[in-house]
Design a protein around this nucleic acid. Structure first.
Length: 581
RNA sequence: GCCUCCGUAGCUUAAUGGACAAAGCAACGCACUUCUAAUGCGUAGAUUACAGGUUCGAGUCCUGUCGGGGGUACCA
């Protein structure tokens, strides 16, 4: 038996081939192989039902005909159930063979899950310069990093680009405030970014108060974009200060970028966007601005995409279009993934529509465009989260508090631990908990932020997964000085817990491909959590250190694979693992 | 107004159009002389907001109602 990393491929190929050999099956037959409830088997084929319906035959009879025609195998038992499901129960021998075969999931995923590696650009995190990162930035940063890791794990070529908001209207306001207050950037003290934020807040208040301030602020942006030396100097300095503060956070989170081009990088490329869009009659002038209407769209026929403001300044639609072209031309992007808040859905829909028309007119192939959007983090009041005094919660404070709280829990469990080790574990646990909370539920949902929930160490949480890894490691430490049998001595899984665990291991590729397909890390989280619970049951019922060599060999193998898959999965999620907890 | 997302156990969530809707928390009961109890096992808990429809089959798709979030021309 040659094992496929993804077992559904074996079964699907088998059923398609068998159906082709039968007179009753003509034309396309999709077997629809799905995971089965454990009480029915391991996999099930649902495809006979719709097929039989289509050609007006009895589905149970059709399923029976396929089953009769299947070649004999010791790899699985086949049974007919319900209205016409075909259930497959993997044999112990198959399970053992499969588990033994795939000790290097990264290698297997790279060849089995992705037929043709793509050039993928992931645009994520993207904070605004001149402001500190706050909780609002955490989701894009963590989800983006995780997707980048997943793509790379599965063999794609990934470019991570931090598309900084360093060229927008907020700079007009900030520059206006700096000048009005006559501030020197060298005298901002210990926490320059916090001072800049205060200035920005003042500026925003002024522009809301009166029209002339707003006009002046807008003019500062126009000046900046026109290359005014003073404004450019200020802008550059502000960007440097901001990057320093971002880097500190990224290092804490284990996030890295290949580029941080930001909107400003495209400032010399926006003119060609206007020109080209005008030339192809994709945009038009309306109320002094340059806009794109999509007449075929029920909503965007009236709600335009603004590519140039009436004051002549560019905005994020312009830079996004210029960026798209750059990524295609310079990086040969075949797919671009934008990880942003769900409130930008309209923008990206309009952007993608516009880009398609534009690329089409220019006879360029357009990359696959995906807007990976997520919900809002809410406070206790179900409104977007703020501190008590209405300020955004600083990300660095939140992360430090997570580590501090985790630290207390580590000490409580193990009071004798040296400070250095406490700190190491607290980092892994605290930051892991924060990340996992964000990744483990469907990204499109809003969620209410609460420390209690974030740092719960029971249930579907990072510490639970980390604990499972630590327990497996503990077994291996105990076995270190023993002579242990190699995996070639292993007997097939027999006990219910051995079987359940082995079966779950074979589902790993499915979890990866589903996450890849939907760009939703929670699928991987759910899988890892289930793998951990299956391991914990196994751990409590079937001891690894037993006399029987064949049994011990199998159980060691199951532990080794469980650890490898858990560690790979957590690595993809950007969560550290610990040898001891 | 128009558009869009959401409504699942007391709470937080899960569920590619497939079989009796799955977990955790909280509650109750059980299991540490044992490879880490940050655990495991069990009990109890659900007209999947409501009303129709499509389908062999609907939490999932369509229409409508109710309730909540978000977007809707120069912020991103």
């Amino acid at each position: 038996m040659k094992f496929n990393f993804d077992c559904t491929e074996n079964l699907e190929a088998l059923l398609v081939k068998t159906a082709e050999s039968l007179d009753d099956f003509e034309g396309e037959f999709d077997p629809q192989i799905r995971l089965a409830d454990e009480r029915f088997g391991d996999f099930q084929a649902n495809g006979v039902l719709p097929y039989a319906k289509k050609i007006g035959k009895n589905p149970r009879e059709m399923a029976q005909r396929i089953m009769d025609a299947l070649p004999f195998t010791e790899d699985w038992e086949v049974s007919l159930a319900g209205p016409g499901f075909i259930n497959f129960k993997l044999s112990p021998g198959f399970l053992l063979g499969w588990v033994e075969a795939f000790g290097q999931p990264e290698e297997a995923a790279g060849t089995a899950l992705v037929q043709k590696p793509k050039e993928i650009v992931i645009d994520f995190s993207s904070p605004n310069t001149a402001k500190q990162m706050h909780v609002g930035h955490i989701r894009s940063t963590i989800i983006g990093e995780s997707l980048a890791r997943l793509m790379a794990f599965c063999g794609h070529k990934v470019t991570r680009d931090n598309h900084l908001g360093d060229w927008g209207t907020q700079f007009g306001i900030l520059l206006y405030a700096i000048k009005r207050e006559k501030i020197s950037l060298d005298q901002l003290g210990e926490d320059p970014i916090a001072q800049l934020e205060n200035l920005y807040r003042k500026g925003t208040a002024w522009t809301k108060e009166d029209e002339s301030s707003l006009a002046e602020a807008r003019n500062e942006l126009v000046e900046l974009q026109a290359g005014n030396t003073e404004n450019l100097e200020l802008w550059k300095k502000i960007k440097e200060l901001s990057m320093d503060s971002f880097e500190a956070i990224y290092e804490m989170l284990g996030v890295r970028f290949d580029y941080a081009h930001g909107e400003s990088f495209y400032r010399d490329r926006v003119d060609q966007v206007y020109e080209s869009l005008l030339e192809h009659k994709i945009c038009e002038e309306n109320e002094g601005a340059l806009v794109v209407f999509h007449l075929e769209h029920k909503r965007f026929c009236k709600q335009p995409l603004l590519v140039r403001k009436k004051d002549g300044a560019s905005n994020y639609a312009t830079t996004d279009l210029a960026t798209l072209l750059f990524r295609k031309e310079e990086w040969q992007a075949e797919q671009i993934i934008y990880v942003t808040d769900g409130r930008q859905r309209d923008h990206f829909e309009q952007l993608f529509l516009t880009a398609r028309k534009w690329f089409d007119a220019e006879k360029r192939a357009i990359p696959q465009l995906d807007h990976v959007w997520f919900g809002t983090i809410l406070g206790e009041d179900n409104k977007a989260i703020k501190t008590r005094d209405g300020q955004p919660v600083k990300l660095v404070d939140l992360l430090n508090e997570a580590i501090e709280r985790a630290s207390r829990m580590v000490i409580e469990k193990n009071p004798e631990l040296p400070a250095e080790e406490v700190s190491k574990r607290a980092q892994a646990i605290g930051l892991g908990a924060v990340k996992y909370a964000d990744l483990s539920q469907d990204r499109t949902l809003d969620y209410v932020f609460s420390w209690e929930k974030l740092l719960a160490m029971q249930g579907n949480t990072a510490p639970y997964l980390q604990y499972a890894v630590a327990r497996i490691s503990s077994i291996f430490r105990k076995l270190e000085n023993e002579e242990t049998p190699g995996s070639e001595e292993a007997r097939p899984p027999e006990t219910p817990h051995e079987r359940t665990l082995a079966r779950k291991l074979t589902f790993f590729p499915l979890a990866l491909s589903q996450t890849l397909r939907e760009l939703k890390p929670h699928f991987l989280c759910t899988y890892l959590y289930e793998l951990s619970t299956d391991f914990s049951s196994f751990y409590n019922n079937d001891k690894v250190m037993v006399e029987d060599r064949r049994t011990q060999s199998l159980r060691i193998l199951l532990c080794r694979r469980t650890k490898t898959y858990l560690c790979s999965g957590l690595e993809i999620l950007g969560i550290e693992t610990l040898e001891e907890m």
